[in-house]
Amino acid sequence: MMSQFRKMDSQVPKVTSVKIETQQFNFYYGGHQALFDINLHIPEKRVTAFIGPSGCGKSTLLRSFNRMNDTIHGTRMAGRIWMDGLDICRPDLDVVSLRRRVGMVFQKSNPFMRSIFDNVAYGLKVNRLTRSRAELAERIEESLRQAALWEEVKDRLHTSALALSGGQQQRLCIARALAIKPEVVLMDEPASALDPMATQKIEELIAKLREQYTIVIVTHNMQQAARVSDYTAFLWIGGLIEFGPTNKIFTRPDQSMTEDYITGRFG
C-alpha cells in the first residue's frame, strides 16, 4: 500500500511560483510514522487545501511548515522542506525567525488572556517590529481591518479578548497572525468550531487574503476546500494520494481513491 505513495510524482502547478517544496518528507511520532515520502509544491500567493480523513497526517504536515511539531516530544523528521531556498527541516534552523515568516491560525481560537489590543500587539512587541506607540496602534488597526474585525471592536480595543464571540475570537487570531506580516499563513481547520455564519466570514476573509499571502489550510469540510482553495492535496494514512488544481481534484481526479473520498464513499 505504501509503495503506491512512493510512486506518486509531485505535481508542479504551472503559472505561479513555488513557495514551499517538500522532498521525500517523512515524519515520526516516536516509533509511529505519520507521513511517508511527501513530495509537494505549495504555490505562492494561492490557497492550498489539505483534505483527508482524521489521522491522515494533514495537520502534521501543516505544522511541519512552521516547525510547530518541535513542541511535541519524541518527534523526528526526515527529508527536506524548502521555503525560498531555505531548508526549514535543518536541525540548526532558527525556528523563531521561521515562525516570523510563517504565521499560524489554530483549530480552536486561542486568544491570550489580555485585551484585544494586546493580543494583536503581542507578536509585534515580541519581535520588536514597531518603533513607536503610534506605529504600533497603526499596525494593530491595519491588522484588525485586514481580518475584517476592526468595525466590530474599534470601540473596545482595551477590553478582554475573551469577551468576543467564537467567530470574532478566531478573526482576532487571524489579525494577530497577520500583524507580523508573515509570508505564509497556515490554518489548521480554522472554522471547524464555528457556526455557518462565522464560517462564511472566515472563508470570505481567506478569499481576500489570498492576494497577499500564501495560505495553506487544513479542512475536514470538503465543500469548504472546494470553495476557498486554488489547489487541493488529498492525503490518506500518511501518504499524498493526489495534488492538483482544486477544480480538477473535485471534478475529474486522477486517482479513484480521491474520487471515492470526495464523493463520500469512505472517510
Binding site: M68, V96, Y122, G123, A177
Partner: peptide, 23 residues
C-alpha cells in the same frame, strides 16, 4: 494552561522563554 496558548505565542515568533513567562 491549554497548550494551544503556548503554541499561539510560539507561532507568533516568540522565543520559548517569552512564551513561557509571558503567556
Amino acid at each position: 494552561v491549554p497548550s494551544t496558548l503556548r503554541e499561539a505565542a510560539l507561532a507568533l515568533g516568540a522565543p520559548e522563554w517569552r512564551a513561557i513567562l509571558g503567556v
